[in-house]
Design a protein around this nucleic acid. Sequence first.
DNA 1: GCTAGGTTGGTGACACGTCAACAAGCACCC
DNA 2: GGGTGCTTGTTGACGTGTCACCAACCTAGC
Lengths: 153, 153
Amino acid sequence: MTEPRWLDEKQARAWRGYRRMRALLDLQITRDLAADSGLSDADYDVLSNLSEASPHRLRLTELATTMLWSKSRLSHHLTRMQQRGLVDREECAGDARGSLIVLTEAGLRAIEDAAPHHVDSVRRHMIDLLTDEEIAALDALTHRVVSHLTATS
Amino acid sequence: MTEPRWLDEKQARAWRGYRRMRALLDLQITRDLAADSGLSDADYDVLSNLSEASPHRLRLTELATTMLWSKSRLSHHLTRMQQRGLVDREECAGDARGSLIVLTEAGLRAIEDAAPHHVDSVRRHMIDLLTDEEIAALDALTHRVVSHLTATS
DNA sequence: GCTAGGTTGGTGACACGTCAACAAGCACCC
DNA sequence: GGGTGCTTGTTGACGTGTCACCAACCTAGC
């Protein structure tokens, strides 16, 4: 490290703002989700990904990579969700190692009940507070950062 | 819940982009921090807050509220950091219940060594990828959301 | 003073995440 | 077809976060 290039005033403000929003928004949305639906963020993400899949089932590895989770974490979490009846595991035809994660009836009901509340929460605490220009800027900026991060690693 | 107002295309793109950036950026910055300095995000935040305090010490409750952490979490984390010699606890003159969290010499060295690398990481993976207009938009937008969230709760 | 009610920090039990290791299965190549 | 090496999903141990509870302490009102 030669001469560290510190952030200037504006950059520092933006960075700290981002960090703080991130933390507060997380807390609030987690709270709302738990109060409205009894689900955790993690539960919601798993259910939502499964519900968007073709016949409501996905390979564990596939689910893990799209969620940016480790297989281990997902496996642990799925056993807990399985005990609550939200998902199930099926054997995978064609690959005897694999297991298919299936959305159960109860899981489908859970995500369908939760989604409207969740969208409302996201709107109230973030989206509806932004102008169209800010939405566009956020879209552009986040996607640029995302492609940088997925290219590098 | 009457008629749920789903997100339109642009809003959904921005929201998903935000979520994905958030996750990827976290992973990357955590990785960098661990590789460069052997610190976790949590460690860094604690040390950075302490180093900015007047005589390098803060009440536990004060630190917890500025970090948006529970006192319990902070207390647990501090005992671990204390075992590594990064912080220490002092008795609090004037309030026998309280304890002052103090930055040790080693803790100061740790944060001073870590900071340049950390700033570099933040620049490379986010700040330097944004235009000045985007920085300004991010600043405005995050601070609006933050004040909404702090006002409500 | 002293009592009632709030605050402070800590603790133990439990939920969750990470990491390393593993058995089982696939795929390829000779 | 039988190594060789990679992939898949699971497990156990351990580090970390959450929650409920607690003792010690402050503060105000009487």
